Amino acid sequence: MTPPGWHPDPGYSGNGPAQERWWDGAQWTGHVRASPGAARRRGIRIGVGVTVGAVVLAAIGGGVYLLGEDGGGGPGTAASSPSAVPDPPGAPDGGEKDGEKGGEGNGDGQGPGEQLPPTEPGFATDLAAGISLPVPQGWKGTSGAVGAGLTTGEHACPGDTAETCVRGGVFSAPAAAMKLTAGTPEEAAKKDITLNAQESYGGKSYGKISSHEELKSEAVTVAGGKGYVVRWKVVTEKGDDGYVESLVFPSPTSKDMLVVVRSGFDVNKDAPKLSVLDDITRGIKAASGAGGGAGGAV
């Protein structure tokens, strides 16, 4: 999976201080800042899935891997080369753009001036999408101004043991933040599942995907809106196989906005059961105080 956040700049030449570049969940932007990791390492950050602060989780799953610093997610694959692009949804006000000198962000993946998501016990809130994801017992939930995520079961990635993967991950973001432009929830879900599978299990952490089996493709009601879900089982080159799911539905606070929830679980005795994924889907609701419909999936 691949979520937005501050990540090591893939175009860094090695000359001068290390820097980070903002990944918007689909491509590298023109926002850069000095790398906090150049001075110290801080906890864990989720690369293929969740980022702390502005959490657009664009890719996820058991294939989600953790990159070694807190406060931001990094792409799960070696992604695109750096280039200056228009400011993406959720991009930080802090940091600087290529060729500009500006202030740094606060180091937690959230730029100065970004609106903090509301705190709701037991839920991870995606402020931009207007939804909250239920956090299963024992899981880690991360709220964000753009995007939210749930992860569990950290372990060494089978294809690159220097990196850390998770047994399960669920991540949300507005479809626009993922550059997903398909018109209907069904069209968007069917388009996104291929990207989800590749980003979750097709990179160096699990090797290439040799085949897949479609387990589900159907309409579903989520948070009061009519959506669509597609679920695959993928066979990987290295390590465990995986389940990936792309769920798309209208935001309960803005019917013109589509929300994407990407999920991925390892096929492993230590991974969550698929029933947990179904429980999470049923528990998705409008963010507290955001208005709009609430309710689970049917």
Rank of each mutant, 00 (worst) to 15 (best):
A176N: 13
P174E: 08
Y65I: 13
A78V: 11
K208A: 12
S132K: 15
I60E: 00
D24V: 04
R41H: 06
A124G: 05
G49D: 13
K269R: 13
S200K: 01
G293N: 04
T181D: 13
E100N: 10
Q110Y: 06
A79T: 09
P252F: 15
Y12V: 02
D266F: 00
P36W: 09
M1Y: 00
T51I: 03
K101D: 11
T29C: 03
S217K: 09
V52K: 09
P158F: 11
N15I: 04
G49F: 14
D256S: 15
L195H: 12
E100R: 10
D126H: 08
E214T: 04
T51C: 14
V52W: 09
G25M: 15
K233M: 10
I209T: 07
V259R: 00
L180C: 05
P158N: 13
V85A: 01
A128L: 09
I280R: 02
D108F: 15
P174C: 12
L277H: 10
P8L: 13
K179E: 06
K191A: 14
T29V: 04
W232Y: 15
K285G: 03
L116M: 09
P185A: 08
G183F: 07
D270K: 03
R262T: 07
E69L: 12
M178W: 07
G147K: 00
A145R: 05
G99D: 04
S217C: 11
W28M: 06
A188I: 01
G11Y: 15
D241P: 02
E245Y: 06
G73V: 00
D240F: 14
P118E: 06
A78R: 14
V298L: 13
S132Y: 06
V50D: 07
V64W: 11
T161R: 14
A26H: 04
R262G: 13
D278F: 05
V85T: 06
E237A: 01
